[in-house]
């Protein structure tokens, strides 16, 4: 079971409290994780990554195991601890605006 922590605005949009847990088939990557997240919560489509390009929105960052994985390739495997559910995958709204 994959654990995902969403920022407050997206938790509210998806009507969830706390962490989201997901089943992800096959290799756990940013793409497969976000595909599963958006399949379960369709209202999140377009809020984390662009509808068409599937690129991460500029002010959204991804963290895992205390590492910024925002710039990792979308099909690169996420850390094993995320795949096992020992560590969450964090979707973070970037601090910006002064």
């Amino acid at each position: 079971m994959i654990r995902v922590v969403l920022p407050a605005h997206l938790r509210k949009l998806a009507h969830v409290d706390g962490e989201v847990t997901l089943d992800v088939e096959g290799l756990v990557t940013q793409r497969s994780l976000l595909d599963a997240l958006e399949a379960r919560y369709p209202m999140l489509r377009g809020t984390i990554r662009d509808h068409v390009s599937q690129q991460r929105r500029p002010f959204v960052r991804f963290f895992a195991c205390e590492q910024d994985v925002s710039h990792d390739a979308p099909d690169a495997p996420l850390p094993a601890a995320v795949a096992t559910g020992d560590e969450p995958f964090l979707v973070v709204g970037a601090m910006a605006g002064g």
Binding site: H9, M43, T47, D50
Partner: peptide, 27 residues
């Protein structure tokens, strides 16, 4: 919308008491 999470469209069927997100894909 916000700069962080982009565009959403919300719809209410009870005069603005409750809302549901609808399609936000503008291509």
């Amino acid at each position: 919308g916000t700069s962080w999470f982009g565009q959403l469209i919300q719809r209410s069927d009870d005069g603005g008491k409750t809302w549901e997100p609808v399609g936000n894909k503008f291509v």
